[in-house]
Simulated scan of single mutants.
Amino acid sequence: MKIAFYGSSLVSSYWNGAATYYRGLLSALAGHGHEIVFYEPDAFDRQANRDIPDPDYARVVVYEASPEGLARAAAQAGEADVVVKTSGVGYADDALIEAVMAAARPGAIRLFWDVDAPATLAEIADAPDHAIRRALPSIDAVMTYGGGDPVVSRYRALGARACHPIYNALDPATHHPVDPDPRFACDLAFLGNRMPDREARVWDFFLKPAAGLPDKRFLLGGSGWNQAEMPANVAAIGHVGTRDHNAFNVTPTAVLNINRESMASIGFSPPTRVFEAAGAGACLITDAWEGVELFLAPGEEVLVARDGADVAEIVATLTRARAEEIGARALARVRADHTYARRALEADAILRRLAAEKAAKGQAA
């Protein structure tokens, strides 16, 4: 099938945490014979901070972040068998979902792919005139990259015909063990952009434990932290491109995952960082969220911290030998159970079922 996919960016991870998800899933979907065109706006300096060339599994169309540019890109949805609008594109999202769904041909499959479902649901729950709410009746299915039954039930209650979580996963060709890099040597590292609903949790789970462990070294990667006050033993290194993710994950004794508040409260939403770290063989410490045991076994394949005090205790007592054992078990688990090849099987089956249902309705008409 021809898929028109409207997202934030496929070629740049700059202020774009969904890049890894898009790359892993779409490359695997292309392996099922789908022809993919990824439409992304020229916004947020992402094109100036590309970290991959145009891939061979999708054609990338960069459109001007203007009403005219959006209109031209949206009109091309009419050529596709499947039209996908994601959340968080970053330029005129409301206008974009209206334009691409209107441009889709009558027999096309229409999907809204939510890569931040807790935040989206909070935004639209009490806004019946929101563009997403208005689009739901014409959308064949909502796809999410997490959230489990809580997100599915909430979307169905808002009028979605169907909702299917397709979780983050590992692309072993991209994230894998590498040699350590002295630039990233430390006891604990965290990688994440500075976001309003993440900042307080970064203080609680990362900066506060660092302040209490002055003899340990901490590394903070991600955009937006350069103006924040840091304990003396924390080094903020700014944006870390995807080419350095493996070394960033494998070099420290452990790496930390901190979910944003909205994601942690709903659970069942492992971010891309979980699988990137495990895929590199890193020892991962994660904040606690419901459903973590569905992806990695606590205490064996991942260490779970309820709060900053737990993080401090883990870092103070964790040996390199134990960290390497946990990382090795995590690597084996995600390679066996949580790859994008597996996720693409799920997504492909959904697309083919929706196409068959559309065809049957067309014949009946």
Results as ranks from 00 to 15, higher is better:
A344T: 06
N259F: 11
A92H: 13
Q76Y: 09
V100W: 00
W15A: 13
D310Y: 09
R329I: 12
L10K: 04
D187K: 03
D187A: 01
A305V: 07
A282H: 00
D171F: 08
G88D: 15
D94H: 15
I166C: 10
I97G: 01
A312Y: 01
I258F: 05
F44G: 11
G362H: 10
T253W: 02
G148A: 05
V151S: 03
A349C: 10
V302A: 08
G147F: 01
V11K: 00
E123Y: 12
V100G: 02
R50K: 08
E35C: 13
R306E: 15
H175P: 03
G17K: 08
G31F: 04
V302F: 08
F275L: 06
V334Y: 07
R273C: 06
A321D: 13
Y57L: 07
A254G: 08
Q47K: 13
A254W: 02
G327M: 03
G299K: 05
A58C: 09
L29N: 02
P106T: 09
T174A: 14
E346S: 10
F112K: 05
V84C: 08
R342W: 13
E324S: 11
V152W: 02
Y145F: 15
F275D: 01
A305F: 02
T286M: 10
M101K: 09
S13Y: 04
E313M: 15
E301T: 03
N233R: 04
P270A: 11
G241K: 12
A92K: 09
V178I: 11
G291W: 00
Y91L: 08
N49K: 15
D215A: 05
E324L: 12
D93W: 06
A210E: 01
F248A: 00
F275T: 02
A74P: 00
C163N: 00
A254V: 02
R194G: 09
R59F: 11
E276I: 01
A312K: 02
V274W: 06
E293S: 15
D197S: 10
F184P: 03
A365K: 14
E98S: 13
S13N: 06
S27N: 12
A125L: 14
R72H: 14
R343I: 03
